[in-house]
Design a protein around this nucleic acid. Structure first.
Lengths: 333, 333
DNA sequence: TTGTACGCGTTATCAC
DNA sequence: GTGATAACGCGTACAA
């Protein structure tokens, strides 16, 4: 493995000084055409590529890179976010370095540190379930920081969230309107911010509808699709509930699998839309929000800060949308 | 925005020389405990973070970063690949910078150049449909390179592919066994390597089964889910086919939507498994391969090369698996 | 218009 | 065990 050719090599090959090559590479105009041609030829001949790592060392220059820490890149929800962010960043000339925290606080912190050491210009972060880094004790300057999907009580950062509580409230009320009274809430651990918010919206809607809450109808152990399927299957068997609100994608699909296995279904509204929701019979109703918008917003904020925006830090809450496709109604008798 | 504290600042604060701080940061042992404590205190006080960009400038050091160029990060197929790669890379201490080419050759080339300028240690690339970079004319040393999912005729690189033709052949034979004779092939443009391979496998199976090929049954315009739905809907109406092989995920879902709209279905086998395939009635049969294995293999190859593996470049073809769930059979009369 | 000399933050050599 | 000093590849005052 040979050493990469450097600017010095090019300068030598073109019988020109370092600075002239630098000018040429940076697209400056004050340059003798004859020298420019010699330099171009040398660059092609040697296969010179500039070393942006070295260039970014100079004061006033940066890595033109944004760091993104999410919980799971394989989850369509987060990959859609990542895609939106990457798209906006690329248009502005930025690369995106993506890392998965797997919801582990330690790992999250390690990745954030690594990205900062790597001199990313900005940082977009989905905070892990188990409290990650305590941002308030970071002494040195931090790059522009945006929290995504979940908030963190840290003053010097922006945040972009969805209106989880509002969406859950709407979904619950839709189930009530369709005639359900004993609505089971099936979701993941309340350690997760979105789960807490969604459950709060669910509880608020019940109160609003004058329905007494029953803690036994709140299931927070649906960590996987399989667990969700088991839990909903149990509910179906013991008849404790007459409807289900599934607080995330995995729970929704688990519920559908349980319904299929049992040969009958309960009214259902899920959280987060999915591509095959239309294929159910009836199609699955969901609370959804514009994930791409969320990613683009976060990226826009970071890029804005990098361009010098020094306005007050804000938390933007994006609206959710209730998409009723039929599954919120009871099965015809 | 203040300047980040540097090693020099730490050295000054701890009343120690630069080199001693460097030693401490790099975990060397030959160091006076008293000095070490002073240094640690200074690091915490100033909030010092090392600048890996500067460190990687030194000969023998690298960015510990791998570049990944895929066609679309939002596609579950590629995000699963990305996730597997990121996971393996992280375990080895590498970050992954991900960029989406959107299948555009120019964009792909630009991203590859940028990643190389950013001094990535290795490169994993899904070549774009429209011939991207001509690797053979790259003059200077290239980092270890692995082509993923689609091959490129370039000698100095490894490749990891799936047995697309074999999978399509198996799927087609399964449909024939279940009684179909006029099998429609629905997929995307033959510009795409995987599409060509899958169609070749389909054609081979037909020949093997003694069925005459009918070009009118090959549909290569299913670029989106909607187009696939329209095409399969047309086939349903004109009765030209008695079965469908859907050559990618979008086509499979489009076909299912067309079946749902028409109230009847044809025998179907799809390509690439999806989470809700189990929810169909009957559940959807698919040709699948281990996407995570594919990503891990690519990452392992790159990391191996980085560790000094200089064995001959290879192309690994991963087996596919035909998962029969029922949809390959005709609808009961 | 072109070249010289220096600094960016880090690590490595080699004296002390 | 520790510290001055020289690189690494690049961009920029400043001088020519």
């Amino acid at each position: 493995m040979l050493r990469n050719p450097t600017m010095k090599d090019v300068a030598h090959e073109a019988r020109v000084s370092l600075k002239t090559v630098s000018r040429h590479v940076n697209g400056e105009t004050n340059i003798d055409p004859a020298l420019a041609d010699r330099i171009s030829a040398a660059i092609v001949k040697l296969g010179y590529r500039r070393n942006l790592s070295a260039a970014s060392l100079r004061p006033g220059w940066t890595s033109k890179t944004i760091g993104l820490v999410i919980s799971d890149l394989a989850n369509p929800y987060y990959s859609t976010l990542a895609r939106a962010i990457e798209s906006v960043a690329d248009a502005a000339g930025y690369l995106v370095t993506i890392a998965s925290s797997e919801e582990e606080g330690m790992r999250h912190d390690r990745l954030v540190d690594r990205l900062m050491e790597q001199q990313v210009d900005g940082l977009i972060v989905v905070p892990p379930r188990n409290a990650g880094r305590d941002w308030s004790d970071v002494a040195s300057p931090i790059p522009p920081l945006v929290f995504l999907d979940r908030p963190v009580p840290f003053a010097d950062a922006d945040a972009v969230l969805a209106d989880n509580a509002g969406g859950a409230r709407e979904a619950t009320l839709a189930l009530v309107s369709a005639g359900s009274r004993r609505i089971a809430f099936v979701g993941d651990s309340p350690d997760i911010y979105t789960m807490r918010e969604r459950h709060a919206g669910y509880a608020a809607a019940l109160a609003e509808a004058g329905i007494e809450a029953d803690d036994s109808l709140t299931i927070t152990t649906a960590h996987t699709r399989e667990q969700a399927e088991r839990e909903v299957g149990a509910v179906l068997r013991d008849g404790s509930a007459d409807a289900v609100i599934a607080a995330n994608n995995r729970s929704t699909i688990g519920a559908l699998l349980a319904f299929q296995a049992a040969g009958r279904r309960l009214p259902l509204v899920g959280f987060d839309d999915f591509e095959t929701a239309l294929l159910g019979s009836p199609p699955v109703s969901v609370v959804s929000h514009d994930i791409e918008l969320m990613g683009c917003t976060a990226a826009d904020i970071v890029l804005g800060r990098l361009k010098g925006d020094t306005s007050a830090f804000t938390t933007r809450v994006l609206p959710t949308q209730l998409i009723l496709r039929g599954s919120e109604k009871p099965e015809p008798a």
